[in-house]
């Protein structure tokens, strides 16, 4: 089942104006965007807790799950049939909250309370599942385990999941929609959007991206070459030579090699630079390189060790031209 929606809130669309949001059975659509972009408004319209939306036949986890007076177990059973309640108890065990169900809800931690709400929401078998920041209150070490339970429980249902976390988006999503200022700016597979943002607004919204301004010097089929600070950057684009351009590419599109020689390969873009900074970013390491321009790359801690990346290290960077977008500026 595929459903297409036009969503507006309020009716003049000042908070949210999305034309053609497509949700499909069996697919997890992640809506990604900065705070205040209208993500929760979009989900509330889909859930029907805000007027004027399609009110899907859905089970819905609000952004800040609220537990009412009573035990955690009482809260988990609210609105569930006997069969759903038994499924919820089973889920609670898998989510690691089986033991806290008898406790007073107000004594639970934020993460436990959210898991109670997840168990309750996932136990219902509605054809659509709407989850607003389902992992926001979870500790780093629990997040991926809970994400796995959620994905398994979704089965072949359709889901719309909201997050502003890249890693969560990558784990939870099949498809990604980027929402900024109430407008849908890009939609595509998670990899595609992260590695090839359609605009600098998207690039900023999806986080660690590389945005480099320069002048377009050549065109060759679908490719365009941009010159910026001594770097020659090839990417997909349609800007006439002689015009100012902007190159956009995701930090995970950058491959790093130790030294100034680098490795042979098909990558059109090959630059040399010096590492200036390393930052821990969740489970990955963000490497900042001066290659004539500031370029950010994402590597695993393992690669960082193997490549002996530290400030001052010389590296060769490669990026496939198809992972770069060159836009007019």
């Amino acid at each position: 089942m595929i459903e297409l929606f036009e969503l507006r809130f309020p009716s003049d669309g000042s908070v949210l104006a999305v034309e053609g949001l497509e949700v499909r059975s069996g697919e997890r659509l992640v809506v990604f965007g900065p705070n205040g972009a209208g993500k929760s408004t979009l989900l509330r319209l889909l859930a029907g807790t805000l007027p004027g939306g399609p009110a899907l036949d859905s089970t819905y986890l609000p952004q800040r799950p609220y537990l009412f007076r009573g035990s955690a177990g009482f809260n988990m059973g609210l609105g569930l049939s006997a069969e759903e309640a038994s499924r919820a108890r089973h889920l609670a065990d898998r989510l690691g909250i089986g033991e806290v169900l008898e406790y007073e809800a107000s004594s639970l931690s934020g993460g436990e309370a959210q898991r109670v709400a997840i168990a309750r929401a996932m136990a219902r078998q509605q054809p659509w599942v709407l989850l607003d920041e389902p992992l926001s209150a979870q500790d780093e070490q629990d997040r991926m385990r809970i994400a796995a339970v959620i994905i398994e429980e979704l089965g072949d249902r359709g889901a719309v999941i909201i997050t502003h976390d890249r890693e969560e988006a990558a784990v939870l999503g099949d498809r990604l929609a980027v929402l900024v200022n109430g407008r849908l700016l890009q939609e595509g597979s998670v990899d595609e959007v992260f590695s090839l943002p359609a605009s600098d607004l998207v690039a900023t919204a999806v986080g660690i991206g590389n945005v480099i301004d320069g002048e377009v010097v050549a065109g060759e089929g679908p490719l365009t070459s941009l010159l910026a600070g001594g770097m020659n950057i090839w990417g997909l684009g349609d800007v006439q030579p002689g015009h100012p351009g902007r190159a956009l590419f995701g930090a995970e599109s950058v491959t790093l090699f130790r030294g100034r020689e680098g490795a042979a390969g098909s990558a059109r873009n090959r630059w040399v630079g010096t590492v200036t900074e390393l930052r821990q970013l969740g489970r990955l390491v963000e490497v900042v390189i001066d290659a004539g321009n500031r370029v950010v790359a994402l590597v695993t801690p393992g690669s960082q060790e193997v490549l002996q990346l530290g400030p001052g290290a010389n590296v060769t960077l490669t990026v496939k031209a198809t992972a770069v977008r060159v836009n007019p500026r």
């Binding site: 859930a47 807790t49 089970t59 819905y60 986890l61 609000p62 799950p65 609210l78 609105g79 929401a121």
Partner: peptide, 12 residues
């Protein structure tokens, strides 16, 4: 507001 939203979200 979180409580009202949660109430609205429950199938009660």
């Amino acid at each position: 507001s979180a409580a009202s939203e949660q109430l609205a979200a429950l199938s009660l």
